[in-house]
Computed example of a mutant assay.
Amino acid sequence: MRTVTSVMIDEPAPAVPARAGDRRGLVVVLLAGLLAAVLAGHRAVPNVHGFGSLLDSVSPLLGLAVPALALGALLRRSRRALLAVVLPAVVWALAHGGAWLPPAGSGPTGIRVASQNLRAGNPDPAATVAPLARSGADLIALQEVDDGDRLGLRQRYPHRAAVSTVALWSRYPITDSAGVDTGLGWTRGLRAVVATPHGELVVYAVHLGSARAGDTATRDETVRALARAVRADRAERLVVLGDLNTATTDRVFTPLTRLLGDAHAEAGQGFGFTWPSAVPVTRPDHVLYRGLTPTAAGVVRTPRTDHRAVTAGFRW
């Protein structure tokens, strides 16, 4: 009887196709790389029809995409995608994370200032400015003022300078004031000299041109006009208060940041968004300065308006 020996022949296992999850992970990797590139190089994007300017202004908000991408990577169980998300997170932290560190400003405050866009047609502007008066501000700059007599500020702020729809209310004497041409065709800015107990202070109260989707030319020209006025001003101590209709991250803002410090960036915390008041996503309202040291800066939510107010304190 013949014995038959069976021989087992190993055959290569069939190739296992790549899991769909890996391909989805690749999408997250690509999106993370794109986000990191935009965060790092948004100012290199051409400013066609104001798109680059808009991208600059919202760049702090782009960080919200990081947790969304991280969640996508976790749902797809892709380690590669999760590691890729670290890159835009680091780029965002380097660019904007410092805003959340404890403010550097400290020490005694010699003068307090505030700025508020009242909103044209505000039915109760006195209610809007009341929190600023209670805050102890020595100077209050207002934009979109319809009737200064309705504000109820005269008792606490006996000195006022006004032109068109902008005004400055002061606890201290205003020794001189004049309109400032910002290229709008009508005056929407003023320069005032305030005699404070610490010395003379020049204050600009301004409302620059509006910016709309695809149309920022007027706003851009008013920023440059204000920068020219400040550059030509020989005052040792100077403060700019107002609605400048752009954020400090906007490339268009550069002519001003070359000349002035930003009180919120140096003595505030967080992004300090002011518009729209209910859920602010950008900061068009500013306190800029030179010749002083900021000690505090903040944002105040006020009623009856679409802007939150900005405040700052300084010492000589």
Rank of each mutant, 00 (worst) to 15 (best):
residue 112 R to C: 06
residue 71 L to N: 05
residue 58 V to T: 08
residue 16 V to T: 11
residue 78 S to F: 13
residue 105 G to C: 10
residue 45 V to H: 06
residue 113 V to P: 04
residue 75 L to V: 15
residue 123 P to A: 13
residue 36 A to G: 02
residue 77 R to F: 11
residue 12 P to F: 11
residue 107 G to A: 04
residue 12 P to C: 08
residue 84 A to L: 11
residue 35 L to G: 06
residue 76 R to C: 12
residue 116 Q to R: 08
residue 39 L to G: 04
residue 64 L to F: 13
residue 40 A to E: 02
residue 74 L to Q: 12
residue 121 G to K: 09
residue 71 L to F: 14
residue 69 L to P: 03
residue 73 A to D: 09
residue 124 D to T: 11
residue 53 S to G: 13
residue 63 G to M: 05
residue 23 R to S: 06
residue 89 A to L: 13
residue 94 L to K: 00
residue 30 L to V: 13
residue 13 A to F: 10
residue 44 A to C: 04
residue 31 L to M: 11
residue 42 H to V: 14
residue 35 L to H: 02
residue 110 G to F: 03
residue 111 I to P: 05
residue 113 V to K: 02
residue 53 S to I: 12
residue 85 V to P: 07
residue 30 L to F: 13
residue 79 R to E: 06
residue 123 P to I: 14
residue 26 L to K: 01
residue 15 A to P: 02
residue 68 A to E: 01
residue 57 S to G: 08
residue 116 Q to I: 15
residue 34 L to Y: 02
residue 85 V to K: 07
residue 68 A to T: 03
residue 19 R to W: 03
residue 11 E to G: 03
residue 12 P to M: 09
residue 39 L to K: 01
residue 87 L to V: 15
residue 91 V to L: 06
residue 62 L to E: 04
residue 88 P to C: 00
residue 89 A to G: 15
residue 87 L to A: 15
residue 58 V to Q: 05
residue 47 N to Q: 02
residue 102 P to D: 07
residue 125 P to G: 11
residue 110 G to V: 05
residue 11 E to C: 08
residue 13 A to Y: 08
residue 24 R to Y: 10
residue 45 V to Q: 05
residue 71 L to C: 14
residue 10 D to N: 08
residue 124 D to N: 12
residue 87 L to H: 10
residue 115 S to T: 15
residue 102 P to R: 04
residue 39 L to W: 03
residue 70 A to T: 04
residue 18 A to I: 12
residue 100 W to M: 04
residue 59 S to F: 10
residue 55 L to C: 14
residue 118 L to M: 10
residue 61 L to G: 03
residue 91 V to H: 06
residue 41 G to Q: 06
residue 38 V to D: 02
residue 16 V to F: 06
residue 22 D to A: 14
residue 128 T to K: 03
residue 76 R to L: 15
residue 105 G to W: 01
residue 84 A to R: 09
residue 78 S to L: 13
residue 95 A to S: 11
residue 35 L to Y: 04
residue 35 L to E: 05
residue 52 G to N: 11
residue 122 N to W: 13
residue 36 A to K: 01
residue 90 V to W: 12
residue 113 V to F: 07
residue 92 W to H: 05
residue 53 S to D: 14
residue 109 T to E: 11
residue 117 N to P: 09
residue 39 L to C: 05
residue 71 L to T: 14
residue 54 L to P: 03
residue 25 G to T: 12
residue 92 W to Y: 10
residue 68 A to P: 00
residue 96 H to A: 03
residue 12 P to Y: 03
residue 89 A to N: 07
residue 85 V to I: 07
residue 19 R to F: 01
residue 68 A to R: 00
residue 46 P to F: 14
residue 74 L to Y: 15
residue 33 G to D: 06
residue 88 P to K: 00
residue 24 R to V: 13
residue 25 G to A: 12
residue 114 A to G: 06
residue 42 H to S: 14
residue 117 N to Q: 13
residue 106 S to Y: 00
residue 97 G to P: 07
residue 84 A to Y: 09
residue 15 A to C: 01
residue 104 A to E: 02
residue 50 G to Q: 10
residue 36 A to T: 00
residue 45 V to L: 07
residue 102 P to K: 05
residue 90 V to S: 08
residue 14 P to A: 15
residue 101 L to V: 02
residue 47 N to F: 08
residue 114 A to C: 10
residue 40 A to P: 00
